[in-house]
């Protein structure tokens, strides 16, 4: 890994990270603040006004009455797919394909650093920034629920939610990173990175609507992360984490490998 390049990555992308940290923390804070310890009756009443299919698609058909379950449904249900997806698409493209596309990658290659070293640095920044994002969310969640509803949050389950969501996002990030390494053109890098993630997302939404479409869930990466199962203690955390880590590593290695041998148009 190249330290000066890593520092440049932080400098170039800190603003993007801060925006997402801020937005997601705000969202999480508001959701925790909305929690009513006397029951989720009001929210259930409101949801009953909406079409059943929509509620199912939003993964809100079963809401746990505890605070952890409430956060699990409302924040780690759909929000946790959407915001990080956008973050990964933007960052993945910025880290590699953008510089290749505009030619500035050549500046890096005129220094005595191998392509592999440079590209590994870029991939590690992606992983690092996602870990920072989820660490902040974890701390924000702990702090706000500790302030509003002391002693109500199940900290170990909340940690598991964040750990799995973090590894899911790293996998998502590695999908974008891989396409960013593979293509020299930002249009293709963005198109494939975003395209695949949007398809996964749609499959996940559709799989919740009815039994006829439930099979689509099997083809979506996002279905591997089920916040309700984690809250209920039904999910095998180790398997999920090892699965995400394995896919991430494979994508990382494939991205680095593809970048190491390709002809660069810079």
């Amino acid at each position: 890994m190249s330290i000066p390049l890593f520092l440049k990555d932080i400098k170039d992308n800190i603003f993007l990270l801060l925006i997402f940290v801020f937005l997601m923390s705000l969202y999480l804070g508001v959701i925790i603040y909305m929690y009513d310890p006397n029951g989720v009756g009001a929210l259930v009443d409101m949801l009953s006004l909406l079409p059943v299919a929509l509620v199912k698609a939003m993964r809100l058909s079963t809401i746990d009455s505890g605070l952890t379950g409430f956060i699990g449904s409302l924040f780690y249900g759909i929000i946790i797919y959407l915001f990080p997806m956008v973050y990964c698409i933007i960052l993945g493209n910025r880290l590699v394909a953008k510089w290749v596309n505009d030619g500035s990658f050549a500046c890096l290659l005129t220094t005595p650093n191998s392509r592999v070293k440079i590209i590994v640095t870029q991939g590690l920044y992606m992983v690092f920034s996602i870990i920072v994002l989820f660490s902040v969310l974890f701390l924000v969640g702990l702090a706000i629920s500790g302030y509003c509803f002391p002693g109500t949050l199940d900290k170990s389950v909340f940690f598991e939610l964040n750990l799995c969501a973090c590894l899911l996002t790293i996998t998502v990030g590695m999908i974008c990173f891989f396409f960013s390494c593979l293509f020299n053109d930002t249009t293709l890098s963005l198109g494939f990175g975003a395209g695949i993630l949007i398809i996964f997302f749609l499959f996940t939404i559709l799989s919740g609507i009815s039994d006829l479409t439930a099979f689509l869930g099997k083809y979506s990466l996002y279905n591997a992360f089920n916040s309700l199962a984690i809250v209920k203690g039904e999910a095998n955390i180790v398997t999920i984490c090892v699965g995400f880590l394995t896919i991430s590593l494979l994508l990382f290695a494939a991205g680095v490998g593809a970048f190491g041998i390709k002809r660069l148009p810079v």
Binding site: D12, W99, D102, G103, S104, A106, C107, T110, V266
Partner: peptide, 12 residues
Amino acid sequence: GYIPEETSFFDG
């Protein structure tokens, strides 16, 4: 030391 035909520098 290398001078490219056309150098693209980093934005900003």
